[in-house]
């Protein structure tokens, strides 16, 4: 697989390590009354879809950027690559 890095251009996926579903960006509020349930679901449960999947890849052997890659889990086709920072800011995180 070739990941089209937003800053560096097309790179071999072997340069990256894989973390998993991009919902891991949305860490639950630890002060919420249901924080225990929230963190259980955040840490352990996954949608694991067949088809379009947004996922976190880390450019370990490159610029060490975290990327959100939209990839089809049935065909391995990559349709979109963004910096995870941009996605996080858009979701309302401050960094």
């Amino acid at each position: 697989m070739i990941i089209d890095h937003p800053l560096l251009g097309p790179r071999d996926a072997a340069e990256f390590t894989y973390l998993g579903d991009a919902t891991l960006i949305n860490r639950p509020d630890p002060a919420a009354p249901d924080a225990a349930d929230g963190f259980y679901e955040y840490l352990y449960l996954r949608d694991n879809p067949a088809g379009e999947h947004n996922e976190l890849w880390y450019h370990e052997q490159g610029d060490r950027a975290w990327l959100v890659v939209s990839r089809n889990t049935l065909t391995h086709e990559i349709t979109k690559v963004e910096l995870a920072r941009d996605v996080a800011l858009r979701l309302g995180r401050d960094r």
Binding site: A13, A14, Y18, A50, H53, T73, L74, T75, H76
Partner: peptide, 13 residues
Amino acid sequence: DGYNTYAQRGNLP
């Protein structure tokens, strides 16, 4: 291979 997939085939690395 190390990434989510439902394709019954892997990659070269």
